[in-house]
Structures are given as C-alpha cells and as structure tokens.
Design a binder for these strands. Structure first.
Length: 269
DNA sequence: ATGGTTGGCCACCAA
C-alpha cells in the first residue's frame, strides 16, 4: 500500500493539480498539509467521489491538515497533545486498517519558525515563532514516546520544516541561520529520530538532490534550488514493513503546482 | 548573494 505526504498549499487553489495527481498516483493513504480551509469549506467531493474516507482539521486562512484513505479510518484525533492553548491546526492522527496490519498514521505540519527571534543570550524569545517551533517539536517527541511506550505501530509524516543535513539543500550555506536548518532545529529533529525512528527516504537512498520543496520565487525550480523538508518517520515495527520510498518530483513542473511535492512510502500492510 | 512569487482573503500575513 502507498502512503503519501503532500503539502498542497491551499485546497482552493490546488483542485485541478491535486485531482490529476490523485488519479495518476492513487495513494492508499494521503496526509495533506496547508489545506488553508475551515472544515466546512473543504471540497470533500474531490476525495469522496474517488472512494476515499476523509478526516480534516482545518482553520481559516492558514495551516490545516487532513487524512484521506481508501482503507478504513478510525479513532481520528485532532491537535498535538501538550498545550491546550495552541489554536493552530497542525496535527491529526487516525488508525488505518490494512489487510493484515493496523497502523497509527500521524499527519503533521511542523511550524516554520521564521523569523528566528533571539534574546541577548541567544535564547529564543518567549512567544516568538522560533520558540513556538522548538516547543512544538518537544511535544511531538513526547507524542512519539507515548506511542512507543504503548507499542502502537505508527508513522509520523508531513511537512517537518526541517532540513536534516547539508546534502538535503542545494545551497546549505544559505540556510545556516534559518529556522529550517540552524543547529538547534536539527538537534531537535535528531532527538525525535533518535528515539528509534527511521527516516524512510534515507533507509532507501543516501543520494543528495532528493528535494521536496522549491520556492515559488527567483526561479528556484528551474535552477533546482530545493530543500528536503517533508519526511516520513517510522517506528521500529513500521520500519520492518517499509518496502520503498521516493519523491514524486515531476509534480513540481506541472501546471499551477504546490511549492511542495509528494513523498511516498510503499508499505506491506 | 540578492530579489522575488504564490495563497488566502480584502489589508496584509505567511511561507
């Protein structure tokens, strides 16, 4: 079965491009980010007409995540545990029933974190976007720990807004001070991976130039000035079920594309 | 290295 993460950058603008890709690729389970829609305005028929179950967690104007699945979906939960005051829609979980196995699918849109605001001592300014990013990552790590402790097979996939290593950017120097690549961001990502999770793409290839995002600006796509920030992390059990992983980069060159492309994992479920 | 584009939505913010 094919499991995919795709930051669609606005469902209202992405209808034609998304449906073309959906019909060509036919994912079994799809998590989306930046739907930029409230739940009531989401065009559910795009998915339901094609036989998908759909769970959305949207908000007005920004953010918003969703899960579409050909396999039965159950136990949908919305929001990342750990902060009841967090009003941003960035996290959704659901249980997917495969032919022989059950998988907890965690779809996430990790905060961008820019601009990086630091105080005189170099600490993130409380209430700033960078502090929010790091706090969110600590909550995500706690959630992964809880799922590991419960021995619930799970995958955490989505737009992490993290460039894990220099080979994951065409021009790493340009990103050194950015919230997507600065060392504390990469350390926080490693602390999650180091719980024992597998980066699905890196389990299948060490090649550089496996980007998932190219900015709309300055001809980034034409110059292949990209970064790898969309990731699929697997718990040890789910990693045993991984068969292949790749990035559907051609989507970026089609008409009216998102600035991200799908990353997929083939799993024995 | 810098400047630049798109989405949501209606004055700009976010990326």
């Amino acid at each position: 079965m094919k499991l995919v993460s795709f930051n669609i950058n606005g469902i209202k603008a992405r209808g034609p491009a998304l449906t073309r890709w959906l019909d060509a690729f036919r994912p079994d389970v799809l998590v989306m980010q930046e739907i930029k829609s409230v739940d009531d305005a989401f065009p559910r028929e795009i998915f339901e007409d094609r036989g998908y179950h759909l769970a959305t967690h949207g908000q007005k104007g920004f953010n918003g995540v969703a899960i579409a699945s050909l396999l039965p979906l159950s136990d949908v939960t919305r929001g990342l545990p750990g902060d009841d005051d967090d009003a941003q829609s960035r996290y959704i979980e659901a249980t997917v029933q495969g032919a022989t196995r059950v998988l907890r699918v965690c779809g996430l849109y990790l905060p961008n974190g820019n601009p990086v605001e630091l105080d005189g001592a170099g600490a993130p300014v409380p209430g700033g976007k960078y502090a929010y990013k790091l706090a969110w990552m600590a909550r995500l790590r706690a959630r992964a720990e809880a799922l590991l402790a419960a021995e619930t097979p799970f995958v955490m996939l989505g737009d992490y807004n993290i460039i894990p290593q220099a080979e994951d950017a065409a021009r790493p120097k340009a990103w050194e001070a950015d919230a997507l690549f600065r060392l504390p961001s990469r350390e926080a990502f490693r602390k999650i991976v180091n719980l024992g999770l597998t980066d699905a793409l890196r389990a299948c290839t060490q090649a550089p130039d496996n980007f998932t995002f190219w900015d709309y600006q300055a001809g980034a796509w034409d110059r292949n000035d990209g970064i790898r920030i969309d990731h699929i992390l697997l718990c040890p059990q789910a990693a045993d079920w991984l068969q292949d992983c790749g990035i559907d980069r051609a989507v970026r060159g089609e008409e009216k594309p998102s600035d991200h492309v799908p990353i997929w994992a083939e799993m024995a479920l």
